[in-house]
Design a protein around this nucleic acid. Structure first.
Lengths: 354, 354
DNA sequence: TGTTAGCACTCTATGATATTGAGTGCTAAC
DNA sequence: GTTAGCACTCAATATCATAGAGTGCTAACA
């Protein structure tokens, strides 16, 4: 028996145990086959015998890092095994200069609007990761009013324009019941700009409504009509996801059985769950943004892994991007890829907002 | 042997042949199992013997409407068999009042914008058909300028507003190099409204550019800046598809093998191909909007069926909607469903445009 | 002449059985 | 503490036999 450790204790592995766990996870990530003791010794040129490796692997199994598919098979990592690997063993494999250049080149094209940028990012991520990509649109709470313009148009109509911090212009034409007085419009325009510049765009309508009392009597009708325009904003700003590359998951052996494939594709259609997963990834990962499903997770989430990263706009977290695939994922490559891409998205979104 | 017919001749089937083909297709559509002669007699209470049915089925095989999976199996329809069924045998199964009511109720909710309507339609279609749904956004050539508004904003800026026939307002704020003269803006505004009202929004920039010479010298700077806004339109109006319900395809036995499933999901990510398919459906169907893949179609399209229907906006065809599934589809139900939904989409889009 | 009963034949699906090989766990020797 | 050796386990694969659904053909029938 190896040193006295139990699954209950905080597991501290010695150098050889770490080396062997690392080897097993690496081997399994590339081959998707259970890893035997002889394989470890051969593939990684170890100076110890297969029998020794067997003993260590048996210990690692007791500690809950490895498991056997059946009594006489090689070992595969458990969810905890992956977790330990991601948290303590893997060395993030930085992108090569060529890869970085390629991503930068992609980003420097077509930058006209936020949607285009996000769609493009999703495409790029799916292509580079060979997994399904998820790109979340900037949070409504990070989208803020930069400027209002109320403009009289004709006799009894007013164009309501609103520019947000990403430079997107929202507009609506409100038709009044009575004639429009230029003075009123200007006054309301000033009021809005002075009081609600920088307001969260999602809750704008509510904010304005709360302070409706401060608006002069004669502007009320106009304000009411403007509110109708504001009311429509949150719906449009609902969390939107840009997904791509899901087909690639069919290449993975873990999705060769239809039930498994079906569950992932089901998950990919449930955007709420995906958003939760992205957040969990960043939370669970203890700074590193990797979510690994537990063995006992409910079907649909069971057996998958997510590498995610938040992106910042103007220095503040605005949303997440990530890739989703089987639990057996090349985390060390993907972590670098996702982080770098998140940086780029944040940078370009910030620029769009400037 | 039955009457002399060969696959080369235009196949005219007699009543009994039609009845049996109808029975085989119906049976196969519901069970997904090869259909034998005894099954036909039993399931459809026929007054002839299994042996007779066997003879007829053998003839239908010679005519290319049925085929055997192997020498001693029951028969399944060929692509031509489905085609004949859809074109000559099936009776479109009208929606029940309850079903129609339900669809109408769905449509009467949430109608704020075009995108919401289309997304909602796609969802509804997927749910009701148990297949993957495809909803195409109205064609750019059907989106037309209804009104321009150029509005001076502050010293040197002009808000460019454009309302299209769906009521969507596009806007941009153009910053001039010099000061803005109200007179110039009004003149250009009139010029645009007089000359380009009803212009296709996709090619608006080009149209304006062609007639740039007619614009007065002193409005040129302004017009150039407005053009920048127009240039951005076509990209946003690129053919967009709203897809939903793809996971449901996993329930179909034909997609139990991963390669098959993979091909359909691959197809669903290729929007160009999907659009082509929708058009083909309407073209092939000879008025009825059903596309049935040929046995020798290239992988990816092989083995699928599409029920599609064009929708009209203001009486003119503006786009397609449809459902995609295995070739073995309940066409008689889906045809009614898709047509009815297309009518509703057209009606509501027209109303939005009014 | 078209229809039917009967029968031999075909082919898949299913289950039982044996074989192979990768890999483990344990023991005894180093 | 490490290693060689060996018995043991189990999935994967192949082989074989059997059952059952369905056909095609022939001869009898209305």
């Amino acid at each position: 028996m190896a040193p006295k450790k139990t699954a209950a204790q905080k597991p501290m592995l010695d150098a050889r145990e770490r080396e062997i766990l690392h080897a097993v996870v690496n081997s399994y990530i590339t081959t998707a086959e259970p890893v035997g003791s002889r394989t470890v010794v051969k593939r990684f040129n170890m100076d110890i015998s297969a029998a020794t490796v067997r003993n260590v692997m048996s210990d690692l199994e007791d500690l809950g890092f490895l498991q056997q598919v059946h009594t006489s098979s090689g070992r595969v990592p458990t969810d905890n095994g992956y977790r330990y690997y991601v948290d303590h063993l893997m060395r993030i494999q930085e992108l090569t200069l060529t890869e970085r250049r390629r991503i930068e080149r992609e980003f420097s094209q077509k930058m006209e609007d936020v949607d285009g940028l996000l769609r493009h990012t999703s495409h790029l991520l799916a292509l580079a990761s060979h997994q399904a990509s998820i790109v979340e649109a900037p949070d409504a709470t990070q989208t803020r009013v930069q400027r209002f313009e109320l403009i009289p148009v004709g006799e009894n109509r007013v164009a309501v324009l609103m520019v947000d911090n990403f430079g997107t212009v929202r507009s609506m034409i409100a038709t009044m019941t009575g004639a429009v007085k230029t003075r009123q419009v200007e006054a309301l325009n000033n009021f809005l700009n002075q009081n609600f510049m920088g307001a969260e765009i999602g809750s704008l309508a509510d904010s304005v409504r709360i302070r409706l009392g401060e608006i002069l009597e004669e502007q009320r009708d106009l304000a009411q009509h403007a509110l109708e325009a504001f009311d429509m904003i949150p719906r449009r700003q609902e969390k939107r996801l840009f997904l791509e590359g899901a087909v690639q998951l069919f290449e993975q052996p873990e999705f060769q059985r239809v039930e498994q494939a079906r569950e992932v594709f089901g998950l990919l259609e449930e955007h709420d769950k995906l958003i939760t997963l992205l957040r969990k990834a960043v939370a669970d990962g203890d700074g590193r943004a990797v979510f690994i499903s537990k063995d006992d997770d409910k079907p649909g989430i069971e057996g998958i892994g997510v590498v995610a990263s938040a992106y910042n706009v103007d220095g503040k977290p605005a949303g997440f991007i990530g890739v989703l695939g089987p639990r057996r994922m090349p985390y060390s490559r993907l972590t670098a890829l996702v982080h770098y891409t998140a940086d780029m998205v944040g940078r370009f979104l910030t620029r769009l907002g400037g």
